[in-house]
Design a protein around this nucleic acid. Structure first.
Lengths: 264, 264
DNA sequence: CGCTATGTTGAGGGAGATCAAAGACTGTGG
DNA sequence: CCACAGTCTTTGATCTCCCTCAACATAGCG
């Protein structure tokens, strides 16, 4: 079966892009520049909720694009902060390495989501962003964004709301880590993934996990064996079917029921 | 012994304030308005890092002040978002109530710290803020802040940095919840508290906990009994002395050593 | 074809949750 | 002033969920 969650070939080709230079077509710095108003992700990404005037401002910035291959870092913890990034295609993880060498994953990011806002506080990135598959991003120079939003209070609101959304996202993750057991954590994770895929036009019930059991475990605060066991438990409860990274949710309500107890 | 962490009587009286109306001196809405540039918290709070020009803009806003008595809510989850708040004196907790009635504490806030930035995302507060002692706050109308920062890119940067700081704060809390054991969590909590008290001119080694064991436990993702036991364990290890809410750290390096393993 | 990376499953142990009880402190009302 | 209830904290005993260690299966890749 083909994956409804896999990125279709047309995913990037439907974009309207403005070629800026034709040199180095294979470089990781793409010669393409992006026109937000024509982007298929416009209702999920930075421009979400913008009025036409603000959108025009955004288009004028013509964000440059960049490819990041699977396993490569978009940015690393400690690097100087310049841009926030919008995912155009593919999946990223945010993570940092603890003193004992273990990795702590703090988030997964898919098309239309923004990354790097944690770098603003110190002027250096607080975490690293690694591609979990071949990806493409738009680089959004933060200082440009600020300069342009000086003229547009609407734009300022949007940037503020985006940062606030990140705070709320981490809030709910804290809640998860602080008060849920293994089954609730994995259920929350899968339902969240399902929702985000649905919002992007993919099947909410059948998808391909881009991250390993260890990465899921790190994110959810549990060991990879426990992740694997919990997947198996869900399968035995008839909630879903798993085969390695392929997941098919067969009882969405059942999964949700596990969470209703905790989160209103 | 007197607590060096207790709020001295002079804490609020040294402030230069601008009386706006003299009616209702006992109302929870204080008739006082605040002059940021003269505030003793200016290097910790919103104005931190501001140039004189920006500071003048801030002064012009003359934030109104509000008293919140112990146990009362400054704002509640679901309420319409209008202001962010700066703590002038006292301590707050941020929390939300889960479907099963349990409380999840997401943060503690002391003088100079900002609260309420999670409300921006949805236009309603995502959590509640409750005073853990008699407190005073400055109300910072968010829309005013946006309007004024339109003229000052420097101000925009500062607001952005403050929100980013909140993201980073939650990041490290996630790290704590995701990868630390009970002793490491409590050590991290106490060291963080100690640092913040020190930055405010109080003793970093001897202080009064404003929150209950249950609240600490909720914040750290452990049960109140475990918090209590871990306090006792630290005492037996000679790291600190505890008597209910009084804490005296006798071996700061020892406490820190427990964390060095995890966080670089 | 091994080799490595990744995932699954089992057995056993331990950190922390849960249940329970008692002490310490606060405020209230007699 | 004391008795009392109510809240908070401490400590003990037991249990359980998840971690740890281990073996094996499978897939991708040189």
């Amino acid at each position: 079966m083909t994956s409804s969650a896999a990125v279709p070939a047309s995913f990037t080709s439907t974009m309207r892009v403005i070629p800026v230079t034709s040199r180095n077509p294979n470089s990781t710095i793409s010669p393409m520049r992006t026109n937000c108003s024509a982007c298929h992700l416009r209702d999920l990404c930075l421009p979400c909720g913008m009025e036409n005037a603000d959108m025009a401002t955004l288009d004028a910035m013509a964000f440059s694009r960049r490819r990041v291959l699977m396993g490569e870092a978009l940015y690393s913890a400690g690097e100087r902060f310049h841009n926030i990034y919008a995912v155009r295609s593919g999946t990223f993880k945010s993570s940092l390495v603890l003193a004992d060498g273990r990795e702590q994953v703090s988030g997964f990011h898919m098309a239309g989501e923004l990354m790097g806002m944690d770098g603003l506080a110190q002027g250096t990135h607080a975490s690293s962003a690694t591609a979990l598959e071949d990806t493409e991003v738009c680089a959004i120079p933060y200082t440009h964004l600020i300069e342009l939003s000086a003229a547009n209070p609407g734009m300022q609101h949007i940037v503020g709301r985006l940062m606030s959304r990140e705070i709320v996202r981490e809030h709910s993750l804290m809640l998860l880590l602080g008060s849920m057991n293994a089954e609730e954590r994995l259920a929350a994770f899968l339902l969240n993934l399902s929702q985000r895929l649905k919002a992007r036009g993919y099947s909410p019930s059948e998808f391909h996990l881009r991250m390993s059991r260890a990465e899921i475990g790190s994110f959810l605060g549990m060991k990879l064996e426990t992740v694997s066991r919990t997947f198996s438990a869900f399968q035995q409860q008839g909630l879903l079917e798993v085969d390695k990274k392929r997941v098919r949710i067969t009882d969405l309500e059942g999964l949700q029921r596990a969470l209703d107890v905790r989160v209103h």
